[in-house]
Design a protein around this nucleic acid. Structure first.
Lengths: 223, 223
DNA sequence: CACCATAATGCCACTCAGTGGCATAAGCCT
DNA sequence: AGGCTTATGCCACTGAGTGGCATTATGGTG
């Protein structure tokens, strides 16, 4: 991989600077407590340049997590060793491994974990950020589906299952992310994600034993 | 149920007028092609009043679909006939039926289907609307989980399965909604949704047979 | 090294979504 | 009909996001 041009390196540098400053500022004073002008001042960049790098204020703070999904897409494209496999892999497991690989690749950078953490925690208390992240995620799953249909002999469009599979993967990842963000020093994100995926089959069988009215009010109080 | 006060009825009337005008205007000229001032003028309402009824421009156009979810929540609260049931119901089926009931209730109004259709189609070509809808959906699933934990003897918090179940339901509904919006004269939304839920178990078993490189390029061309 | 072509940046003015504050009007209650 | 409460309208203001154009930095070429 040839070293990118000076121009490109500079662009990546300001991009990273914007992300880092944004995360720190938003974390300290809240997403709404920092104006774009302020952010641009601290990075010494004009607002116009900001909007050539990111699509919105939400976008810059969501970048760390979006990077995971973009890497996931490239992982889906990476060649699959047909000879090594005995049988065609389960779709969900294939995607799980691709996402785990993406995770490993992204977190190769030391500060990546902290950035992901800050990004997620911010999203949790900033509706517009959460919204932006979810929408990006939806667009990404769309692209993931396209790739999968091209690379694998999946059932025809119209069959709901491939899409549902991708959505399940996303649900498992979001769950893991939330759990990890709540206790970042506990179990690693990758492990949590594995566990979430492993829990998917069992969810279908879950039964719901109704409580009595009395028990309900107890459950309410335990909140 | 007593008839609401005149005040309340007026409020609901302007609310509905705002929704309808918004859907028509946005549908005709695109979400970005209509300013709030314009919308407020056609409904003869001040912008200030608009923001007392809706939280954002996206919000008014997303209202029809949000109403479905809000009704879903009240359905989850509705009493469950313990005597009639032989065994505790599967959680997913219980939620499926609650959502179907909500759907039936919401579409009791004649023009509701058209509103839902316009809202969905707009969301599909308006990222910020889609984002807003997804975020609302995420908040709603949170509330749904709370209700379920209160009403049913579900596994402890920390168990990923209840949340995954709700997310599966949401995925199935979104899939149905997309399919229905693409061909609103075909199968009904409720039926599509049933089918999507029924497809959930089969997604776990899906296998992905890799294509050869040649087949890949064919699949690419078929796009 | 000097040169031009090209691409990135900065600056300025502008639109429009969204908010706070306060005066006014409309529904409510006895 | 009276005051009381609650919704509405109006106005000024902040800040996100965009278009246009001048300026500067980079890449490639003789």
């Amino acid at each position: 991989m040839p070293r990118p041009s000076l121009r490109e390196r500079k662009k990546q540098h300001t991009r990273q600077a914007l992300i880092d400053s944004a995360l720190e500022l938003f974390d300290a004073r809240g997403f709404g407590g920092v104006t774009l002008d302020e952010l641009c001042d601290t990075v010494d960049v004009s607002k116009r340049t900001f909007f050539r790098t990111f699509t919105s204020k939400e976008d810059v703070a969501s970048a760390p997590i979006q990077d995971i999904w973009l890497t996931f897409l490239t992982e889906l494209e990476s060649p699959y060793d047909t000879d090594a496999a005995v049988a065609p892999p389960a779709l969900l497991e294939f995607m799980r491994d691709a996402l785990l690989a993406a995770l490993a690749q992204v977190t190769a950078d030391d500060s990546a974990e902290r950035r992901i953490l800050l990004s997620r925690q911010l999203a949790e208390r900033t509706p517009s950020m959460d919204a932006h992240g979810l929408e990006f995620c939806a667009r990404t799953t769309e692209r993931a589906l396209e790739i999968l249909h091209r690379r694998f002999d999946l059932p025809d469009r119209g069959d709901p299952r491939p899409r549902l599979a991708v959505d399940m993967l996303v649900a498992a990842f979001h769950l893991a992310l939330a759990g990890w963000a709540a206790k970042p020093t506990g179990t690693g994100l990758g492990t949590l994600f594995r566990e979430s995926v492993a829990a998917l089959p069992g969810t279908l069988a879950l039964t719901a034993a109704p409580r009595s009215a009395v028990d309900e009010s107890i459950a309410r109080r335990e909140r």
